[in-house]
């Protein structure tokens, strides 16, 4: 005759540090809890997730010594999984899941705005080249261009910082761009990504 250890005893053992007691508890109730969750969510992956979250709560509660329902282990675990199922449906109601089909994949429309490694390298190279070209400009034009492009300052701020009028700052910016284009054309530099 096979003698089965009571849940309450296993819980006590587990609280006292016997980790294998948890394995017995999980394996003993695996089928009941899994079937219960699956009957509600009808999705294998979600069932696995909810099962896992349920036992994470169980483990935390037992390790904190906050478990007090001796002898009613399974109903307690079922109640936790029930609450997590409700959470799952609430979350999905707020944020419905969209699944693509064979004809339409959402990721063909939504892209990752980050550059890939190659484009990032090209961008870095362009930034470096451009910085060198800016160094070729006369000091007054370079100053305005750096403030406007790299420091993102307004022309009013540039005029206050350089002590020239807004119109002069605008003119210097205009000539800075014209001269940059001239240097680029003269040296046949290709700045593109």
């Amino acid at each position: 005759m096979k003698l089965q250890i009571e849940d309450s005893e296993l819980v006590r053992d587990y609280i006292n540090g016997n980790e294998s007691a948890l394995e017995i508890l999980i394996n003993r109730h695996n089928q009941r809890i899994t079937s219960f969750i699956y009957s509600k969510v009808l999705d294998r992956d979600i069932t696995e997730d909810i099962f896992q979250d349920t036992f994470i709560k169980v483990i935390k509660t037992l390790k904190k010594g906050k478990y007090s329902e001796e002898g009613k282990f399974l109903p307690w675990v079922m109640r936790i999984s029930h609450n997590l199922i409700i959470d799952h449906f609430r979350r999905n109601k707020r944020m419905p899941m969209f699944e693509g089909s064979d004809d339409f994949n959402i990721f063909s429309v939504i892209g990752d705005d980050k550059l890939n490694a190659e484009k990032q390298l090209i961008k870095n190279q362009i930034d470096t080249d451009l910085r060198q070209l800016v160094e070729e400009l006369p000091d007054d034009q370079k100053e305005v261009l750096l403030m406007r492009i790299y420091k993102d300052m307004s022309f009013k701020e540039i005029s206050e910082n350089t002590g020239v009028s807004i119109n002069t700052a605008l003119g210097r910016m205009r000539y800075a761009l014209i001269n940059l284009r001239k240097i680029i054309d003269k040296n046949n530099i290709v700045l593109t990504n």
């Binding site: 695996n30 089928q31 899994t34 079937s35 699956y38 294998r44 069932t47 696995e48 099962f51 896992q52």
Partner: peptide, 8 residues
Amino acid sequence: FVKVCPKT
């Protein structure tokens, strides 16, 4: 599907 996988 009555049991979660051993990995879980």
